[in-house]
Design a protein around this nucleic acid. Structure first.
Lengths: 148, 148
DNA sequence: CAAGATTGAACGTTCAATCTTC
DNA sequence: GAAGATTGAACGTTCAATCTTG
């Protein structure tokens, strides 16, 4: 097993970073411009929506790949805007849920199609079915290697 | 042309984000722990090294995918640590170069093998040659679509 | 008046410390 | 004493405004 990547793999890692930066910058700018919604807020709304409306702070932090204090403060701000609220966890006095409010659900509903069109335009439309299958195979290995 | 991505492509985009977050978090932690070097600083040192030791602020900002004011302040901090210095551009009185110092070059030299081992461990070793070829083909299309 | 670069002020993130509950 | 969550203080990022030169 090599201890260092060959030049192709190093170049691939750079392309990966470059594509990530370019695409996320555009998706974030679009949500901000069209819905006044930071991408990180949209991400929280999405995860809560998929979880049926509520997640514990810890789980939500993991789901959105955020630091726990950063998420705590982000939820403060979103709560101040009426998009989520906190609720105690019934059987664990330490825990807090973040819960989608009606306004949060509504903003999520209005923002998801816009964001998905963005993902189509900036990412998905450039890939053939063969590309998609190959990348999913490769990324699945990477994601699974980092689950440990 | 579809206006929204199919579920496979949406899932692929999520895997992409998840892999990116997991890998960059580990690479950043390793450079910080072993060399007291933030990943963004390493990135600046690397780009300057590849450019022969100097780049204009604007070019450097583009190369590292950073906002120009953020880069300006990052170069302030790196200058305070003696890793880079600024120099006037001879034939354009508005311009500034960021220039690698001896200490910056030395830290780059000591950090590159560590970082490349990290890229191998967290990214490259998980991919077959087939994966690499397929991803490079797909990512090249994405990167080129965002060059405009 | 546009381009390169920096800056003030507001904002977001992070680490370590803290609080509460298990 | 460890886990879930929040907080103070330090730090990093961003936007718009500014300065200087082309």
């Amino acid at each position: 097993m090599a201890t260092r990547p060959d030049p192709d793999r190093l170049a691939l890692w750079r392309s990966f970073l470059e594509a990530h930066a370019a695409i996320t910058t555009k998706l974030a700018a679009e949500l901000q411009a069209e819905r006044q919604l930071p991408l990180a807020w949209f991400d929280v709304l999405t995860r809560l929506g998929e979880a049926g409306g509520r997640l514990r702070m810890r789980e939500l932090a993991v789901a959105v790949s955020a630091n726990k204090s950063s998420l705590s403060r982000q939820v403060d701000r979103m709560e101040a805007e009426g998009l989520v609220r906190r609720e105690d966890v019934a059987d664990d006095g330490r825990g807090q849920f973040a819960v989608l409010t009606k306004a949060g659900r509504e903003l999520l509903r209005r923002s998801t199609p816009l964001h998905q069109r963005g993902v189509q335009r900036e990412f998905a439309q450039h890939l053939t079915d063969t590309d998609v299958a190959a990348m999913q195979r490769a990324l699945a290995k990477l994601v699974s290697a980092h689950k440990d």
